[in-house]
Design a protein around this nucleic acid. Structure first.
Lengths: 117, 117
DNA sequence: AAATCATTTCGTAATTTTGCGAAATATCAA
DNA sequence: TTGATATTTCGCAAAATTACGAAATGATTT
């Protein structure tokens, strides 16, 4: 019945980080925070983004859970910024994942199949 | 009431590719296919992966929808391999997204907050 | 003590994702 | 034509995601 392998840590981590990056709101936040070490407040973000405060809060929670951001409590504000350690790890993981490729050109002669839905 | 920006194409594409990468089964498939231009069949994958045939088929469909793989029909098999053009695009997008950072060290003095759930 | 402020948590609803087995499809072999 | 094969599609259920407004939290100011 075959081995039905467990996924490696690497595969699981890539899937986990990708999940955190799988919503435009979260990509936007990370893009903003990763630029030259900037930080920002939930209140700043809600002005720019097409979601309400509570929804934004949930997205921030997801990013914290994934380890990609961290918040410094500074009442009554919370200052968010990138979690550099994990951001570096994500960077490294994606980099090696995406670059395992190369070589071999004409492996599959293409052919678009099906559409979604 | 503030501008409530639209997301850029870049942000949307990153979110879209990330969504495709947000499940271990799909990361595994891509990891396998991206290595030295290899191809494989649904039947090979179902031996290795802890999901049934119909579920695997759905994951392959997601990857096709995202444009990351393509299948060459070769009855009674379908040979799957990476869609190089879009894989390169994803590579480039993630690379510039993840590397916009750098500079600035002590922006936020850390502090782990909350747990998930 | 009461009011204010930024933010999160709660409760709820709509939608999407993930998974399965059964049935359908399409092609080749007997 | 019948049977076998590889894969997908269908129908369904359980769980997760996304979103909202209302209420709660925690700290400061009046």
């Amino acid at each position: 019945m075959s081995a039905k392998l467990e996924f490696t840590q690497e595969v699981q981590k890539i899937a986990g980080f990708s999940k955190a990056l799988s919503h435009p709101v979260r990509v936007y936040i990370l893009q903003k925070l990763s630029k030259m070490g900037s930080c920002c407040y939930s209140g700043d973000l809600v002005e720019e983004l097409p979601v309400g405060r509570s929804t934004l809060s949930q997205h921030l929670k997801e990013l914290k859970y994934a380890g990609l951001i961290q918040g410094e409590i500074n009442p009554p504000y919370i200052k968010y910024c990138i979690n550099r350690k994990n951001w570096e790890e994500a960077k490294q993981l994606f980099s090696s994942f995406l670059n395992e490729t190369e070589i071999a050109e004409a492996s599959c002669e293409v052919q678009a199949i099906s559409e979604h839905q």
